[in-house]
Structure formats: structure tokens, C-alpha cells
Design a protein around this nucleic acid. Structure first.
Length: 823
DNA sequence: AGCACGCCGACT
DNA sequence: GTCGGCGTGCTC
């Protein structure tokens, strides 16, 4: 096979007539990865109406598909395919027209796409469909031709209908630069973003079921395009949506600039960014050493990894920024990536503050489609010209095109959200490593509580670790205190009396407190006093959580909800006992207990559903409009409030008993991070952790902020129980619809096949056991845990298992390598 | 995703 | 007898 290079000229000419013809025939077949369904990679002839040398891998093209020749956008995967790679008996269609003059994607980018495709076991087109912004994978573009008299605009499908001679004329205009590719017509349904404008309960008649359905859907799914909503809810939702829009309960339309701003970066004005003015300009010796270690990694002629292990406030960001500058000065690109939009924005702002005028770009998922498209195009152009850029963003920025990547920095590398994404499940660390490996750059992992696997790699000598052990500016670590709540006398709240006292003292002094409770809603369990049953989700069999403000019982796994009050599903009774306590109730309880005039704010997924709400809440708390902020783990990340002197972890045990080998590790990380919220200002802070198990080994390490001690203990436990980093772990998830009678038999049959090939390949197979959530969204779920010495064997096993399931089967199986949550 | 082809209920 | 429902299957 002959692959054309970037500037694709035919690789060779053969002068003798006949042979040249044969060669040209070969060169005139390309394979195209479709970026829209069916996402396959298909072969096409190159058309005679455009010059041969313009086609090359990475070029986006429009191709006809199917009997009616409807157009799809695709990317040329390879040029000059041998005719024998084309399946027999298919008549090749011709590529219709290119979508651009120069290829959007370079060879390195295509290689990344191929790798991802292999790893996810999906066609490359599907990967492209996920990585490129919508406008760049649409065949709906128009061409503006400036030739002769007045310019005309034509759609690509008009070209499909043209006579050959006409196409040749157009082609000559194209080659002479008289044609411009216009952006695809913006799809109104795609551009209209719908979101709820008021918190529940909403003033809607109970009889208006469709309106309630729309509101609940939007509440559950956040701002979504009208297209997606109608797709999910059916076109029947159109009328109720318009009614709601008219009544002002729902906003429909493009997000205006102000809202878009607040959606992503309003956080800047809400939180004080750390005082870089004082700290950053002079690096401490430790920071200098860390910086040197990182720049060495950039300069070496192989790709290298560094762990930057530093407690909160030890000045990691300053090192990142100096590293970024060093890279740019050498003409290399840099990516600074954070696990959350707000943190990414903060990094970006830090860059702007520190190095005004540097070519920096902010990229995250909350930007408009058009914005992302422009960014992608811009970066691709810079990459083609080899100009270095600095990208600050969330992990989705990993997939932007850049030239000569000097370094990728993953801040908070232990964060689980570096693994998961709704559309694409990937390990940011692995993709980042792949990208720096391509350019022999450096991967810098930063964390105060590194992933156990990462730290193990350091200990084993696979990567150098750099320690920043002192807080810049000499702030002290907060004192950590355990409160036993096993025999809590006060039943109304999970907060023990002494905790309450401490909270009251704090707010009376005019200081602030944050309270972490990792359960949203009002009450996680609703107990029917008439029949003694607990309200459960009909789809998931999981307990429904009472949301008081919303007047509904909600399933936290699938989002299904029922109005409350409504009769018990079992006995039609109407008397319930709410049990347990979520953030909503804690907020309510606390506000009745505080001294007069002291207020409570709440930060969780429910209070921040409307665009901009999170920033408003954080800003109000930063302005000290309230004394207490109650919230889920959302509030443990990176925010900096100088007046907070007390952090309370209301239930330190959540997570310790989860069915996940990483539960302890994650509890440790979360709690250390939460502890970092207190005492970041002038006044010393303290932390209270409430627990039913004060003897658990992890508390001592948390109290002393002793990561390494914790690491040793945890590693020993994993060695004993054969968990990563000592083995590779994967989960095969199986599910079938509950109404499928043969389901159980099929699962059993598949399971014995998997166990058999497991024995053959040396993979230990556990299960299948019912998943921790045995029923979800109407499907019964099982999982098989696989332990092997390498990933390849696991993939082989999964491939074999999937071969054994007919395509028509209602049994679904998916492979999760190194599962982040085992639920 | 579209759009074909292909087998079973309420109509001229 | 036909029109039409949407259940599988393919697209170079």
C-alpha cells in the first residue's frame, strides 16, 4: 500500500504508458472514514474532475452513500489503496468534493485516531465523530464561487447533480482559489439551547403531564439542544416546550455571550484566585528544582514522565506556568489540563496574569459548537505551520491538533474524571502519554494525593517523582479531629452535638464553614408507614431519594422520578417516613439552628443545574453573604475562601464500604482535599471528620496528611488481594432487557465460554455476578471481573466473547478496562 | 442515521 | 385482494 505524505504528490511516476496507467489506477483509490453513521471506512475512486495531487490522508471530503447517494463527510484515511483491498463485487463510487483546501488533520493526529479506534474497538470514523466539533464533520457546507459575474453559492448536493463538464469548470475555479467553503447552515434545532429558568416546584397544572415531563427532563439533563431534547422525548414535546418558553419557565434559544461566559468562566470573579502576585514571581528552591526536572524531561530525546507530588498550596501551578513558558520559548506546544471546567479556567487566568500576551487558548466542553469549531480550525492551522501554542483546558483538550508537543501537564492526576466521559471512555493519562510519545515530550502529573498506581511507578523507578513538601508562604496544615457518630443521640441530623457547637462558634466569630455531605436531595430513603416498604425505582430497583423543593422522588442512577406525595406503589398508602439526610435537609436543619442572621448556602448538582448558578453561589459565599456552605464533593475542589476556618466532613464513611478496590484510596484523596479547604487564609483552620469507625487505619494518615504512609498500607492490601498495580483489571459488563425470558440462559452460556477461554489465556475470571446495581434502566445487569497480566490478553478474551454473541441478540456486553467505578 | 427489503393487520 | 406497519440489514 502506498501512503501519501502530507503534501501529497504521487510518490513516483512510471514513464512507460501501460504501467503508468496501472499505477495510477491504484493511486486513484482512497479509503474514507465516515464521520457520521454508519461510521465505516469505505473505498472510493478519486474523481477525474479534480487534480490527483490534491488528495491526501487527513483531508476532509464529501462522499456519496447508498442507492440515493446521500452525502456524508469523511476523512481520507489512506491514499493509493491496492485494488485487492476492495471487497469483491462492489462498484466504487467517486469522492464528490473536498471540504477544504489543505488537510485538517496531520499524520500524527490520524495515528492517534487509529490507536483510539483499536483500543475502543470501534471504527476510526466513530472516533473522529467524537473528536471533531459538529461543524467540521458535516457535509452540509456550501461553496461560494467568485468567478465571472456575481458570486454564486451552491450546495454540495447540487454538484452531485451536475454534468461532468460543469464540474470541470467548478474544479478549475477551485484550483484557482476562486471558491470559498462556507460553514454549514446552522441547524436551528441544534443551536437552540433549552434550559429551565427557575428552581422547582414549578407553577404547572398537575394535568399538564407533558409540560412536567419537559421540565423534569431539562432539570435532569441540564442545558441541552432542542434537537437532543426532541430526540429523547419525541417530537410531541415541541408544543409543551413552546408553551413553557412563552410562560418564561424555560429558555429556548442560543446562549447569549453573557450566559456562555457565566457557564464557564464566571468562576474567576467568584473565587479569589490564589495570590500569585506575591508568590509566583520568585520560585522557591524546591520549585526551581521541580521546574528543572520537568524541563530536563522536555529536552531529553525520549518521551518521559514526571510526578509532581506536592501538597495543596505548595506552588505546583507556578511550576506548570514556568514550564509552559520554557516550552514555548523552545518552540514547543504545551497543554495544561485540569479535571474540571472551573479549574481549567483558573489555570487559563493564571497564565494570562503571569504571561500576558502569550499565545494561550482556553478549551472546554461548555463552549458553543461554533466556538469550538473555530478553535479547532485555528489550532489545526497553527499545527500545520508548526507554531507552538499553549492550551489550558479540561481533558477533552487532549484531542486538539497541535504541533510538536513539548509537555502535557495533568493537574490533579488522581482525579477519576480524567477517565470518564459520556461519549468516549478513555484514560486521559494514556492518551496524554501517547501524544507526548509522538513528539518525545514530557508528561507531567501533578497531585497532592497521587493515584496509587502512579506512586507505585515512582517507587519502582519507572518515573522520577519530584516532591514539593512545603506550603509556599508557610501556611500551616489544618488540625484534623475525628468525631464518633456511631451512637449519635440527636436523630434529626447526622451532625453530632459537638460538631454543631463548633459550627456555631465558628460562625459567631464571623468566620465561615464548609460542610461536605456526599448525598444530595432531602432524604435518601422513603419508608412507607403503612406497608413498611421503601420507595424504589421501577427501572433500577434502587431506593428513591426525596427531593423536597422539587416535590418528587428521584432515582439518582437513571433520573426517573415520580411526583410526591403520591400513593405507595405497593399499598396505596400515603404516609411516609423520610429516612437519612441529604444536603437539602442538612441545609434546612442548619438554617434553623444558626444564630440569628447567619445564612446557609448549598452547592450540589441540584442547586447548580441552571446555567451560572454555581458561580452565583460561590460568589455569594466568597462575598460572605452566608456563613455556611453545605455541599457534595463539588465543593472540595480547588475553591479558595480565605474566611473558611472550619471544614466538616459529615459522613467520612461513605466510600469506605463501596464495592471498589479503590474506595479507600478515593476516600483518602477526597478527605485530604476537603481538609485543604480550611485555613487557607490568615487564620488557622480545623477539620472535623465524622465517622462510625474511628479505628479505621486511614484516619491517622489523613490526620497527619501522610500520603506515603497511607500508600504503603494500601499497596500492601492490594498486593495481598491481587489488585492493581499488581494485575491488570477489567470488567465485562453484561445486560439484557428485563422482559427477555432467555436472558439468564444467554448470560450463563456466555459466562462459561468466557471462563473457558480465561483458563486457556491465563486470565482469572470472577463471576458473572449481579452488578452492584442489579437492575438499571430496565435492564438486568451482570459483570465479570477479569484479572490478567496484560491488557492484550484481556482484549483477546473480550473479542472472543463478543464473537460468540449474534448481532441480533438482545444481550449487550461492553468492556471496561481498569474500571473507575464498579457500579 | 437513512433507506431499502420483507412479512402480517385494517381498509377500498 | 391491496396499503402500510416498522423489524433486520446494508451502505464502497
Amino acid at each position: 500500500m502506498i501512503l501519501c505524505g502530507r503534501r501529497c504528490r504521487p510518490l513516483f511516476f512510471v514513464t512507460s504508458g501501460n504501467r503508468q496507467l496501472v499505477m495510477n489506477e491504484n493511486l486513484r483509490i482512497v479509503s474514507v472514514s465516515l464521520m457520521a453513521p454508519p461510521y465505516t471506512t469505505l473505498h472510493y475512486r478519486l474523481p477525474e474532475w479534480l487534480p490527483e495531487e490534491m488528495w491526501c490522508a487527513g483531508l476532509r471530503v464529501a462522499v456519496p452513500l447508498g442507492a440515493r447517494g446521500t452525502l456524508r463527510a469523511g476523512v481520507i484515511a489512506a491514499c493509493g489503496c491496492a485494488p485487492d483491498t476492495v471487497p469483491q463485487g462492489v462498484e466504487l463510487k467517486a469522492v464528490l468534493w473536498p471540504l477544504e483546501f489543505v488537510p485538517l488533520l496531520g499524520e500524527e493526529y490520524l495515528e492517534m485516531v487509529r490507536q483510539l479506534a483499536v483500543r475502543q474497538m470501534v471504527p476510526p470514523g466513530q472516533i473522529l465523530g467524537m473528536l471533531l466539533p459538529a461543524g467540521l464533520r458535516s457535509a452540509g457546507v456550501r461553496l461560494r464561487v467568485r468567478a465571472g459575474g456575481r458570486p454564486r453559492t451552491l450546495r454540495l448536493r447540487d454538484i452531485a447533480k451536475m454534468a461532468d463538464s460543469e464540474r470541470h469548470v467548478l474544479a478549475s475555479h477551485w484550483s484557482a482559489g476562486r471558491v470559498e467553503v462556507l460553514e454549514p447552515e446552522t441547524d436551528e434545532a441544534e443551536n437552540d439551547i433549552c434550559h429551565v429558568t427557575a428552581d422547582p416546584p414549578w407553577p404547572v397544572r398537575p394535568a399538564a403531564r407533558r409540560q412536567t415531563e419537559v421540565l423534569e427532563y431539562l432539570w435532569e439533563n441540564g442545558p441541552v439542544s432542542r434537537r437532543r431534547m426532541l430526540h429523547d422525548l419525541g417530537t410531541g414535546a415541541q408544543t409543551p416546550l413552546l408553551t413553557l418558553a412563552e410562560r418564561g419557565l424555560v429558555h429556548v434559544g442560543p446562549l447569549d455571550a453573557e450566559q456562555a461566559e457565566v457557564c464557564g468562566c464566571g468562576i474567576d470573579s467568584a473565587c479569589h484566585t490564589e495570590a500569585f502576585e506575591n508568590q509566583l514571581f520568585e520560585l522557591t528552591d524546591a520549585q526551581q528544582a521541580a521546574l528543572r526536572a520537568c524541563t530536563d524531561a522536555v529536552e531529553s530525546d525520549s518521551a518521559e514522565t514526571r510526578l509532581l507530588f506536592g501538597i495543596t498550596g505548595s506552588g505546583k501551578t507556578a511550576v506548570y506556568l514556568e514550564l509552559a513558558r520554557a516550552c514555548l520559548e523552545k518552540g514547543l506546544s504545551v497543554m495544561l489540563l485540569a479535571p474540571e471546567v472551573a479549574l481549567a479556567c483558573k489555570l487559563y487566568r493564571d497564565v494570562q496574569l503571569r504571561f500576558p500576551g502569550l499565545p494561550a487558548v482556553l478549551y472546554h466542553g461548555y463552549q458553543s459548537a461554533h466556538e469550538r469549531e473555530q478553535q479547532f480550525l485555528n489550532l489545526a492551522a497553527q499545527a500545520r505551520e508548526g507554531r507552538p501554542v499553549l492550551i489550558a483546558g479540561t481533558r477533552s483538550a487532549l484531542f486538539l491538533p497541535v504541533a510538536s508537543l513539548g509537555a502535557v501537564v495533568l493537574d490533579e492526576e488522581h482525579d477519576a474524571s480524567f477517565k470518564q466521559d459520556e461519549r468516549l471512555s478513555y484514560q486521559a493519562k494514556e492518551v496524554a502519554w501517547f501524544r507526548v510519545a509522538q513528539s518525545k515530550g514530557a508528561l507531567v502529573l501533578g497531585s497532592a494525593t497521587p493515584d496509587v498506581k502512579t506512586f507505585h511507578a515512582v517507587r519502582e523507578g519507572h518515573m522520577p517523582g519530584i516532591v514539593l513538601s512545603e506550603r509556599v508562604g508557610g501556611g500551616t496544615l489544618p488540625a484534623v479531629e475525628l468525631v464518633n457518630i456511631k451512637d449519635n443521640a440527636v436523630k434529626e441530623t447526622i451532625l453530632a452535638p459537638q460538631t454543631l457547637t463548633r459550627i456555631k462558634e465558628t460562625v459567631t466569630r464571623g468566620e465561615q464553614a464548609v460542610i461536605l455531605l456526599n448525598r444530595r436531595g432531602y432524604a435518601p430513603l422513603m419508608y412507607c408507614l403503612d406497608c413498611g416498604s421503601v420507595a424504589r425505582c421501577p427501572e433500577c430497583e434502587i431506593g428513591l431519594t426525596y427531593h423536597k423543593g422539587r416535590e418528587r422522588l428521584v432515582c439518582h442512577y437513571c433520573g426517573h422520578s415520580v411526583p410526591f406525595p403520591s400513593p405507595c406503589a405497593k399499598c396505596r398508602g400515603v404516609h411516609y417516613l423520610p429516612m437519612g439526610e441529604g444536603t437539602e435537609k442538612l441545609e434546612e436543619t442548619l438554617s434553623t439552628m444558626l444564630p440569628h442572621g447567619k445564612k446557609v448556602l448549598r452547592l450540589d448538582r441540584d442547586s447548580t443545574r441552571r446555567p451560572g448558578r454555581m458561580e452565583q453561589i460561590l460568589a455569594a459565599f466568597a462575598r460572605e453573604e452566608s456563613s455556611i456552605l453545605v455541599g457534595t464533593q463539588m465543593l472540595s475542589k480547588g475553591h479558595h475562601f480565605p474566611s473558611v476556618t472550619l471544614a466538616v466532613v459529615a459522613d467520612g464513611d461513605i466510600g469506605l464500604n463501596m464495592p471498589d478496590y479503590r474506595a479507600t484510596e478515593r476516600t483518602f484523596q477526597l478527605l485530604v482535599q476537603a481538609a485543604g479547604r480550611a485555613g487557607r487564609g490568615e487564620r488557622p483552620g480545623s477539620v472535623i471528620i465524622q465517622t462510625r469507625d474511628p479505628a479505621h487505619y486511614c484516619w491517622d494518615y489523613i490526620r497527619n496528611c501522610d500520603y506515603e504512609g497511607f500508600f504503603e498500607k494500601e499497596l500492601e492490601a492490594r498486593r495481598k488481594r491481587r489488585y492493581p498495580p499488581f494485575v491488570k483489571l477489567a470488567l465485562i459488563r453484561l445486560s439484557y432487557p428485563m422482559d427477555w425470558p432467555q436472558g439468564q440462559d444467554r448470560v450463563n452460556a456466555l459466562a462459561s465460554a468466557v471462563r473457558a477461554s480465561g483458563r486457556e489465556l491465563g486470565v482469572s475470571v470472577l463471576g458473572p455476578a449481579p452488578a452492584p446495581l442489579p437492575v438499571l434502566r430496565g435492564r438486568r445487569r451482570f459483570q465479570c471481573l477479569l484479572k490478567a497480566s496484560d491488557w492484550k490478553t484481556i482484549r483477546m478474551l473480550f473479542h472472543a466473547a463478543r464473537q460468540g454473541v449474534p448481532a441480533s441478540s438482545r444481550l449487550r456486553l461492553s468492556l471496561d478496562l481498569d474500571p473507575v467505578n464498579m457500579l
